[in-house]
């Protein structure tokens, strides 16, 4: 067994997600990603089930595995109790561990996600906070959000939040001791290493392309769309 298959067979999502696929295509029929992208979960599961290391390697470096929305609608419907969405989670993990993700446009976006969400978790103790939803990056949020953003302190006070203050309540500042525990959990479980690895692979890719990681490369991974996905 090659390195990729070995890692997949140790992955808890992969183990839980794949029993045996009969290629019926029910997952594809229900899949919101298949409706929008050139994506077919049946083919992904079938490819993985065949177990050809070379074919799986091509999946890991492709856009394909990054189209899924992890809604898990496929889990409800599969007559064989597979979960293509979990198989995808396994593939994405291995694609990142082995550095394949920087070879595709959608894969490179993992840097943007690491930068925005990963760093927010370790800095503030939340995945998302109001200051992250900057109107210029989120025009779809509309003028009411712009108003909320501009009057953040007053709006959250009006609506019973406790923005960045000590004590309980919505959007409270997470105390230092809890932040310390959260960060140690990331250190002990390999979460920190995983984030650093995404960053190191992305830095290498940015260097190859002569771009600054946190400026040009970030914006590119956040905004680039070649429109070759449908």
């Amino acid at each position: 067994m090659g390195e990729i298959l070995k890692r997949l067979h140790e992955d808890i999502h992969f183990i839980e997600g794949l029993n045996s696929c009969m290629n019926c295509g029910v997952c594809t029929a229900i899949c919101p990603a298949a409706e929008f992208y050139n994506y077919d979960p049946r083919v992904v599961v079938e490819t993985v089930q065949r177990g050809d290391e070379g074919e799986i390697e091509r999946l890991l470096e492709s856009d394909t595995i990054w189209y899924c929305g992890e809604c898990m609608s496929c889990k409800t419907r599969c007559p064989r109790c597979n979960t293509p969405g979990l198989v995808i989670m396994g593939l994405r993990r291995v694609s990142q561990e082995l550095g394949y993700f920087t070879r595709s446009e959608k894969g490179r976006q993992q840097y943007a996600l690491k930068h925005v969400i990963g760093e927010s978790v370790l800095k503030r103790g939340y995945c998302v906070t109001p200051d992250l939803v900057r109107p210029e990056m989120h025009p779809e949020q509309g003028p009411v959000w712009e108003w909320v953003y501009e009057h953040m302190d007053a709006v959250y006070e009006r609506t019973h939040g406790n923005l960045r203050k000590p004590g309980a309540g919505a959007l409270r500042a997470v105390d230092e001791e809890s932040m310390g525990e959260l960060r140690r959990i990331f250190d002990v479980t390999g979460g920190t290493e995983f984030l650093e690895h995404i960053e190191a692979c992305s830095r290498e890719e940015a260097r190859r392309e002569g771009m600054d990681l946190e400026e040009g490369y970030f914006l590119r991974t956040y905004m680039e769309n070649s429109d070759n996905h449908q």
Binding site: M89, Q110, G118, Y126, P166, S178, T189, G191, F194
Partner: peptide, 21 residues
């Protein structure tokens, strides 16, 4: 409880937070 934090779920389903974390 003010001491609880994010579950990291958005990071997990964006595939930047591993399962054991």
């Amino acid at each position: 409880d003010p001491r609880h934090t994010t579950c990291t779920g958005i990071g997990y389903h964006s595939d930047v937070v591993p399962a054991q974390t």
